[in-house]
Nucleic acid binder design. Sequence first.
RNA 1: GCGAGUAUAGCUCAGUAGGUAGAGCGUCAGAUUGUGGUUCUGAAUGUCACGGGUUCGAGACCCGUUACUCGCCCCA
Length: 425
Amino acid sequence: MSIQKPKGTYDLLPDKAFQRNFIEKNLREVFTDFNYKEIRTPAFEKTSLFRRGIGEETDIVSKEMYSFNQDEFTLKPEMTAPVIRAYIENSLYNESPLKKLFYISNMFRRERPQAGRFREFSQFGAEAIGSGDYLIDTEMILLADTILKKFGINDAKIRINTIGSVAEREIYLKELKNYLSKYINELSEDSRRRFKTNPLRILDTKDKKDIEMLKDAPVLYEYLNADTKENFSKILSNLKLLNIRFETDYRLVRGFDYYTSTTFEFTSDSLGAQNSLLGGGRYDLLVEQLGGKPAPAIGFAAGIERFEMILEENKYRFPFEKEIMLYVVSIGEECKVAALKILNCLRNSGIKCETDFLNRSVKSQMKEANKYNAKFALVIGEDELKSNSFQLKRMSDGSSLSFTNFENIIEYLKNENQTSPSGQT
RNA sequence: GCGAGUAUAGCUCAGUAGGUAGAGCGUCAGAUUGUGGUUCUGAAUGUCACGGGUUCGAGACCCGUUACUCGCCCCA
């Protein structure tokens, strides 16, 4: 083994690449139906964008970024900050007060790889910038749910929470720290660290003793203003009206600094330890933080590899790749050119076909045709060229049709191509 | 950054108490001269992850390294 791929990366071999393309095609369809427009941003950005956008103290920024050129640039570890940067830089707010954008792109984080986690991975996601209305929160969750349902993923758990405004959270955090300080010596090591760095995340702990201690801890929800609460309950009742099953989880706290009020997460049991499939929420302050005219916004991101893991677990039936209509078995120099000529005519009509490039025996070429699942095989040798008589063989039953010139064969196959349905696995 | 497990042909794996490598699948070729799928026959491919040690002798035992996998943290 000479040179290996970098840790945490993977090759998408042809079969999987085909499936990935199918997934992306369908994602684009749903996003487009919801009137989201695709945006693509550079693979790398100024490092300061992520420092300011995601938050200096987050794991991603503090230890997981791939930076280069004396830290000037960083391979994007997430898409929200780049999208907002592009939104501001290109004055998209001047086009219309609400911009609905989606992306499908690869990200880079220098983490320890494990099941469902890679150093280069792909996400699809959406950002709606310009509306603070609860209706767009509802639509955002509906969009995410629609995508999953489109792929037959019906068992994802949806959890929703609101973490309020910065001001509301400040009051709460004081109370929470006050409460936890009584237990500070009994808390798990992780929680003690979070006490200093990000006390909200203590609520997310998996430690049993911690959970016990948190039982009587103050609840953020109770520190929220009446209109925040009302807004939240409107979202929830809307979701109910739309028949979306969810649960509220007052402990759901997201890892990036930019989140405000609504947060949500879709999880699946098919994913192993990393059970988070999709996460999102509102980030009303980010646009301003990144130097734009203040605009409320909300979005979500989902991991494509985890998405694929679930599809595999569910034995999702991907379509077959387009079948080969004709395999030309050619014998001898002249015939090979003749073969390419036929293939060229068919290909110009969008028909998939193939011939031999290895000077192999007729038998081997037939085997090849069979392996490719070609619908027809056509043998071209000196005999055929001399007598102008060609046998088009139907591979499924071995029957053959006689032709006296190429034009008729091509016409026949074009016709056949139109009537043949595209198969499912 | 921390913890655990694994490392034998392209793939999935055998390899028993240490005696210098096997199967299935796949690939390629042949089974009367130019016709596939089934069947049969044959072939190729491994510095048994790397380095050291124990031993007359190690794929198997010991140590180290590296890679991969899974988990913690965090996240998609």
